[in-house]
Nucleic acid binder design. Structure first.
Lengths: 213, 213, 213, 213
DNA sequence: GATGAATGAGAATTCATTCAT
DNA sequence: TATGAATGAATTCTCATTCAT
């Protein structure tokens, strides 16, 4: 009662947070390596060095754990994209830097997961159902990113940089499609193109495609 | 009397083919709904209205069944794309018609699966291993499609239609990225854009992006 | 009615018998190679070159098929032993020749099965139950052989050749124990002893053991 | 306080050992009753009163469980035989006491399994493969027993007790053949001979058979 | 809180047996 | 009569989840 509201509590709480973070990291790791079904709670726990049961003190189910990861990643992505956008001056620069950051992230494990993981995970009736139910969380963030891109595009149109006759949704949709690092992965497997060259040319193509006439 | 010699044989064989077709269809259905791991052989069988064991008379394992579906789909896709390309006259028309046929197929269940299924299925360490081993089959077909697109793009460059300074791999990679009907699905969920309008604008954007200067 | 009792009937019947014989042979072959559970009706049928269902026209179940084989083998063994005994003149010669014929048979596939098969097959609750029930058939033959051996031993005792103070059941039991070619198999794997030398020495040992004092 | 340091550890460990022992016992029981193939992991578990999955916490597979039983039994048998041999003074006494202990064990379930189980189990192509691979374990112990018997026989020969002209392998092979309690089982079913009388007479026969001339 | 042993539903696969053709 | 496709019970093994310690 007289206790400081956050002191002893928050010590425990901090430890708790740290452990949860470790679980999330380990889970993300295994998940990316093996996909949803080949990831066992056992392996996650043993990578963290804790017991299986402890995982369940933090997340009510394997499913919830995975959802938590995806949500967190979605948030991270939004943050990165928003920060990136803020750093660009022109509308084109803003979009270019998003392109660059996402593709660079392909080799930066802290970022590459953000785009890759959903592909690895989404394929399960269980999880898909959740995505629909959790619209409030996951979907929200995705929508926010789309809105951000759309606003940049609209700004560009208003400024006469981008083609007014091309519907913004098409522009935005194309932009997202080009963002998937899978294209580059496949490309890179066959012909060795340096990443920055790839991104540069992709940008050239994209901005020519949406350029005002 | 006038019957082909293979009559009695082919009767049995025809029934066998029909049943196999039913299994493949049911499996494809469940697979698309639920993904590889949540699809049980039991459910496939019961959708066809046969016993579990019967499935194993046609396919030695669940894995083989899925592989068969993917291979068949890859072949169908190649066939469709090749036929589509043949029907176009200019290089642009050829690519435009591929775009159209793939997106139209989105609502034609016989075609929509072709592009969607691999995404749902590929995410399992088991199956991914198979894809590497089966390179001779699956990968071959995919490579063939890429080669086809690339050759159209090269022709276009030679003819002065497309931008010679843009590397063909980038053009081709971008083209494939835009092909994924997922973009449209997401788009369509939010804003109601008619499919043909979507494809038309996407084509406009793409060809402006790769147009010769 | 007026038909010859055995003519058209017996043609069919003969073919039937022949086929049954083929089935029995194939089954015995596979059974010896793989044991009861690893032998599938499918494989038996395909070795004969007939359909699985046809096997069931001859034998109501896999179990019955195996029982039939064992019974037939028991009969063959009895026949061989009885013929062998008849050919010997002294009691010792009679037993010696049984020893020899059984061990020689170890390399004669037509005989080796007779002693080996029961060991391969008997280990299944199903079959053991049957052995008890079918006492009338299998057991009978075995008993008959034991009686035959016992009578030779009794004769030998009466003739003053064998030890009267050694109970016949012990003599007979020991004789049967020594008959199992498995001992020789194991022995032969380690140290290379020629079969006839083995049998000779085994006989020497046995007859010294039961010799009259 | 006075407790050994290993207390808490060893409590868990002890329980684990106890449960494992129960599983081994139940498995041995069912195995002896039904043979390898008719023994299901389910039944073993339900005899112990635990869930199927729990069996797999102790043994990675049904096969491993059975191997564990056989190895343990082989070890027990070796131990018993070695102890028995040590207690005898003359070479004859040593062999006699082995005979006695194995046959007595026929009614002592803790011992009878040792000789019976291999016969019930070995007949499965699966397991036979394992026996070859695991030569280092199972076979080793069997070889050790054979070596022990052989050395007793050799000693007896050197001491002038046993027949020098009879090859040791034949003597040893005959001894092992006579050891199989199956002979007695059959005998006992027909004529009621007391066990110790049986063993006494069998010994008389055997030692007369190998006696020096 | 943390643990990890125990659970048991569920999945893939096999194969003796049946029966329509 | 012969066939072999179809059946489905049974088996092994896995793993998310629970709960007594």
């Amino acid at each position: 009662m007289m206790q400081p509201v956050t002191a002893p509590r928050s010590l425990k709480e901090k430890q708790r947070q740290e452990r949860e973070e470790l679980i999330l990291q380990a889970a993300e790791e295994v998940l990316t390596e093996k996909g949803y079904y080949d990831t066992s709670v056992d392996e996650i726990a043993s990578r963290v060095g804790i017991a299986k049961g402890t995982v369940y003190l933090h997340f009510p189910s394997k499913e919830d754990l995975v959802i938590a990861i995806l949500e967190r990643n979605a948030q991270k992505l939004v943050d990165i994209v928003e920060a990136t956008v803020a750093s660009g001056s022109t509308n084109r620069e803003k979009l270019e830097s998003i392109l660059l950051v996402v593709y660079s992230g392909f080799f930066d494990p802290r970022i590459s997961h953000l785009m890759q993981l959903p592909y690895f995970v989404v394929n399960s009736s269980e999880l898909r159902r959740v995505f629909v139910e959790k619209k409030g969380c996951m979907r929200d963030k995705w929508d926010r990113m789309e809105a951000l891109i759309a606003s940049i595009l609209e700004d560009g149109k208003a400024a006469g940089e981008f083609d007014k006759t091309l519907p913004t949704p098409i522009m935005s949709s194309a932009f997202f499609s080009l963002l998937s690092p899978r294209s580059f992965e496949r490309l890179n497997a066959n012909e060795q193109i340096p990443l920055d060259e790839f991104v540069k040319q992709l940008g050239r193509f994209y901005f020519k495609g949406i350029a005002a006439v």
